[in-house]
Design a protein around this nucleic acid. Sequence first.
DNA 1: ACGGGCATGTAATATGTTACATGATTCA
DNA 2: TGAATCATGTAACATATTACATGCCCGT
Lengths: 187, 187
Amino acid sequence: MKTTSATRFAILGLLSLEPMSGYDIRRAVDDVLRHFWNESYGQIYPTLAALEHEGLIRLMPAAARASARRRKVYAIAPAGRRALAAWRRKPPVYRPFRDEMLLRLFFGDAPSTPALLGHVKRLRAAETRRLAEYKAIEARIRREAGDHASRPFWRATLRFGHHRSSAIVRWCDETARALRGSRARTP
Amino acid sequence: MKTTSATRFAILGLLSLEPMSGYDIRRAVDDVLRHFWNESYGQIYPTLAALEHEGLIRLMPAAARASARRRKVYAIAPAGRRALAAWRRKPPVYRPFRDEMLLRLFFGDAPSTPALLGHVKRLRAAETRRLAEYKAIEARIRREAGDHASRPFWRATLRFGHHRSSAIVRWCDETARALRGSRARTP
DNA sequence: ACGGGCATGTAATATGTTACATGATTCA
DNA sequence: TGAATCATGTAACATATTACATGCCCGT
C-alpha cells in the first residue's frame, strides 16, 4: 500500500480525543467533522484493523469497556500519537477539486438558464442552512469546550465554513442577477 | 455500470464547443476547466470509446482532420447534445467534500501551532495566486469571447472562484491572527 | 540525428461507497 | 414481542490516478 489517504489520521485524531469503537467513530465523523470530512464503514473497519496491526492503536480489554456488549473499543497508542503529530505538521497534498454545479454552469446556454438558476437557488438554500448550523455549533463549542485546549482550532475550522458559505451565498445572489439579466438581453 | 460520474459530460461539454482529440480534451481541461474540474488520460480515453460506442460522439473521418497525423478527432453527435442538455438541467448530486488542511487544524495543539500556521500561510499564497489567475482569465474572456453566447456562464464560474478565493484569503488572515494570539496566551 | 512535444492506450493500484449479512440489546 | 438502534464486518462495484508502453512528427 502506498497510503497517502488521510483516513487513518482522521481516525487516529478522533481516538486521540477519547477511546471509541468503529461505530462511535462513524458517529463522531458525522457529528463533528461533517463540514469538512466524511468516512464510511467500508473504510473505518478495515483501517481500524490495519492500525491495530501496526501498533498505532490498541483494543481495550473487554473488562474495561463501558457495557457488556460486544463493542470493540480502541484507544490510541503512543506510536499513534507520534504518527498523528508527524502527519499534522506535513503540508497537506493538494487535491484538485471538482464541482459539478460549476461544470453545468460553464456549459450553460440560453434554454437551460432557468434550470441553472434553479441549481443556484438550491445551492444558496444549502449554504444558508450551513450558516445556521455553524452558528449552532459555535454556541455548542462555547458551552461545552469553554476552556478546552482544542477550542481555538475547532473554532478556526468553523470560521472556515462560515467564510466559505457566506462567500457562496454572495456569489449565488450575484450570479442569479447576472443570469436573469443576460436572459433578458438574449431572449 | 451505474455511471453517476460527470466525466462523460465534461468531455461531451468540451466537444460541444468544437471537435477534439483525447489529447486536446486533456489540454482543454487543464487550460479552461482547471479551477473546478480535472480529468486524467486514464479516464478520457476509455470514456471516449464508450461515448462513441453509445453513439453520443462520432469519430471524424481522417480526411477531414487538420493534419495527416494519426490523431483521432471526435465530434459531438445530436444524441450527445441531447444527453448534455438533459444532464445540465439535472440538479447536481451533493458530493461531501474533504479538506485535509482543516482536518489537521481540527486536531491541532499548541506544539503543532507553528506548523499549522505554515499550512495557513501556504494556503493564503496559493489562493492569492489563483486570484491573479482569475484576473488574467477575465481579461482573456473579454478579449476572446466578447460576444460569445457562453460568456455570461464562463464569467459566472470565474466569479465563483473569485468569491471563494477571496473568502479563503480573509479566513487565512483571521486564523493566523487567532492562532498566534492563542499561542501567546497558552505558552 | 535526436530531443521534445504530440498522441493513444492499458495495467496496476488506490481509494472509496453501497449494499448486504448478521446478530445483540434496549425499550415501549 | 417487535421495532429501533447498536454494532461489526465484507463483497461488489465505481471511480480515479499513476506509471508505463509505444511510437510519430517537427524543428534545429
